Simulated scan of single mutants.
Amino acid sequence: MPRSTSARAGLQSSAEAAETVFYEALQAADVDMLMRVWADEDDLVCVHPGGPRIVGAAAIRASFEQILSRGVLRITPERVLRTNTLSCAVHSVVERVQMQADPGDTKFAFVLATNIYIKTPDGWRMVLHHASPGTAHEVAEVIATAERLH
């Protein structure tokens, strides 16, 4: 089902810009903004860490509404590797995740994510977000890199 004209406002001129909006929407717990990043395709796919394959915009929206209703979620993309062509972009991201369900109850994790964007007549839009739990190796690598940079 096509989105409204107002939902199409602010479409992205690059896959990098679309990804920025995606992570800003997660930080703000703004499902409407988050869904504006997704393409108007029937076969959109999203996999959350340890979860099943979710297909379609309505199901993806419902999954993010459920996740974002659980508390404050901060996701910081790090160590992004990009492969771009004229009409497709694949971003491999290490996500630093901080979730606070209750005051004083903060949990941390590292997640490995792949975000795929396609260039549409309406701009760059996401067609796949696949996230998996990070391994101890990725965690150590991200922490070691962060320590060298600061």
Rank of each mutant, 00 (worst) to 15 (best):
G123T: 02
W38T: 03
A140H: 04
R82T: 12
A39I: 03
I60S: 00
Q66Y: 12
S13N: 14
T5N: 10
I116P: 01
G10A: 04
E24S: 10
D122G: 06
F110M: 06
Q66G: 15
L81C: 12
T20Q: 11
G104A: 11
N84W: 06
A9L: 12
P49A: 02
Q98N: 09
L86K: 10
V127W: 12
P52M: 10
G71R: 07
F110C: 04
A109H: 12
A9K: 09
G51L: 10
P103G: 02
P52Q: 11
G71M: 05
L44Y: 02
A15Q: 11
P133Y: 12
T135A: 08
A57K: 11
A17N: 04
T76G: 04
W124T: 04
T76L: 14
E24C: 08
D40G: 05
K119G: 05
A59H: 08
A18M: 04
I60W: 04
L26F: 06
A109W: 11
Q100A: 08
A89G: 00
S69V: 06
I143F: 10
I116R: 07
S87K: 08
A89K: 00
G123L: 06
P77K: 08
D42T: 08
A29Q: 10
R36I: 08
S69I: 05
T114Q: 07
I116Y: 03
V31L: 10
Q27S: 11
V47T: 06
L86S: 12
P103C: 02
H130N: 14
Q27K: 09
Q98F: 09
I54A: 05
S92F: 05
V97Q: 02
H129P: 02
I118Y: 03
M99Q: 13
Y23R: 07
A89D: 00
T5D: 10
S92M: 08
T83M: 11
D30W: 09
S13Y: 09
Y117L: 03
T114W: 03
G50R: 06
I67E: 10
V93T: 01
L73C: 09
R3Q: 13
A59D: 13
G56Y: 03
D43K: 15
Q12A: 14
M33N: 10
E65N: 13
V139G: 02
A109F: 13
P2S: 08
A131E: 01
H48N: 05
V47A: 05
V55Q: 14
D30H: 10
R74D: 14
V37K: 01
V90T: 04
S132E: 13
R74A: 15
G10C: 01
R3T: 15
V55I: 15
W38K: 03
A57Q: 10
V97N: 00
W124H: 06
L73K: 09
V55T: 13
I118F: 04
H91A: 01
S92D: 08
R96A: 13
A28D: 12
I75M: 15
M33G: 08
G123I: 01
H150K: 12
